[in-house]
């Protein structure tokens, strides 16, 4: 029997030479400022040629929900939760100085005046640059968020092992 012999050291060196740097980000927060930080890092890394994956969980899922989409969760409790917890990248509140929406509106205005991209624009840029979006299925279930209410471009629906398998390969891991 003949098997191709591969020198392990050569193999490893080749792998290391060709392996692109990877970044994984867990976005747990649904705050405008935190989501912006996550997307700025993601787009910056992608522009540097790094492979980027963002895992959306808990309130972070609000960033990838379509604005105003009604939850189609089966039980009324979760449907209710999905309805009360407003989603959409355009509607994320500031973590501080939200002031019932007034502070956030002011911040968005300042950003626009300064030609600073907001969360929706940064998110589109991230998708353009090949950043992968993964939605956490467990928290989707908990919060009454169904697949049909998420934006297009969500690459995978997965759980903690998918995250860990990717994080293990990454040189940059962030939890926001």
């Amino acid at each position: 029997m003949h098997a191709t012999h591969i020198e392990p050291a050569t193999m490893l060196a080749q792998l290391e030479a060709t392996k692109p740097e990877r970044v994984t980000i867990v976005l747990l927060s649904g705050d405008l400022d935190r989501a912006m930080a996550a997307f700025i890092i993601a787009t910056g890394a992608a522009a540097m040629g790094m492979q980027v994956t963002i895992f959306f969980t808990f309130w972070g899922l609000n960033a990838i929900r379509r604005k105003g989409a009604a939850s189609s969760a089966k039980d009324w409790l979760r449907r209710m939760f999905g309805a009360l917890n407003k989603g959409g990248a355009e509607t994320l509140p500031l973590s501080r100085f939200h002031f019932g929406g007034l502070g956030t509106k002011m911040m968005q205005k300042v950003m626009k005046q300064n030609r600073m991209p907001g969360v929706p624009e940064l998110m589109r840029t991230a998708l353009d640059l090949g950043v992968r979006f993964i939605a956490c299925t467990t928290t989707m279930g908990l919060m009454g968020i169904t697949k049909d209410t998420l934006i297009e471009g969500v690459d995978q629906f997965a759980g903690v092992t998918t995250y860990l398998a990717e994080a293990k390969q990454s040189s940059v891991n962030l939890f926001i």
Binding site: T43, G44, A46, A47, M48, G49, R115, L129
Partner: peptide, 12 residues
């Protein structure tokens, strides 16, 4: 007129 990270993204 563009802030970080736009200049780098546009460059890439």
């Amino acid at each position: 007129g563009y802030f970080c990270p736009m200049p780098i993204i546009l460059t890439s």
